[in-house]
């Protein structure tokens, strides 16, 4: 039983070995289905060119998504929050230390009261 609850927190459990066994079984089932399909296609023809609605393919650099673009929807969606938080990042170490002391102090009060 110790094997089955190899990571037990008292609130929940998970067994990484069982998960590995399960995902291997899943991979075999999925691979068998994948294998039953046709693999062939016409290599080196227009068929293998990327689909761009008939437009010419731009250079790789023009369509590359940079790390800064990756979370665009995220930063745009909660723009109001970022507009307030970004100016707080002054780049001055003492400002950051002050933030740590403030937050630690508030947390201490909450923990003491609760």
């Amino acid at each position: 039983m110790a094997f089955a609850t190899s990571l037990s927190s008292g609130f929940g459990i998970w067994d990484p070995v069982l998960w590995i066994i399960a995902i291997i079984i899943g991979l075999v089932i999925a691979w068998l289905l994948w294998r039953s399909g046709v693999s062939a296609y016409k290599k080196g023809t227009d068929q293998a060119r990327p689909y761009l609605s008939g437009n010419p393919e731009p250079s790789k650099g023009d369509v590359h998504i940079r790390a800064g673009n990756l979370y665009w929807g995220f930063t745009e969606g909660i723009k109001g929050y970022y507009q307030r938080v970004i100016p707080l990042h002054t780049g001055i170490a003492t400002d950051y230390l002050l933030w740590i002391f403030w937050v630690a102090g508030i947390l201490l009060i909450i923990v003491m009261v609760v």
Partner: peptide
């Protein structure tokens, strides 16, 4: 399953095929 399985020329074939599995 009976259709051609096209791997685009810009793709990384092993990752492209592994993802659906």
């Amino acid at each position: 399953l009976a259709k051609e399985n096209v791997v685009p020329e810009n793709a990384i074939p092993w990752l492209f095929n592994l993802a659906p599995v």
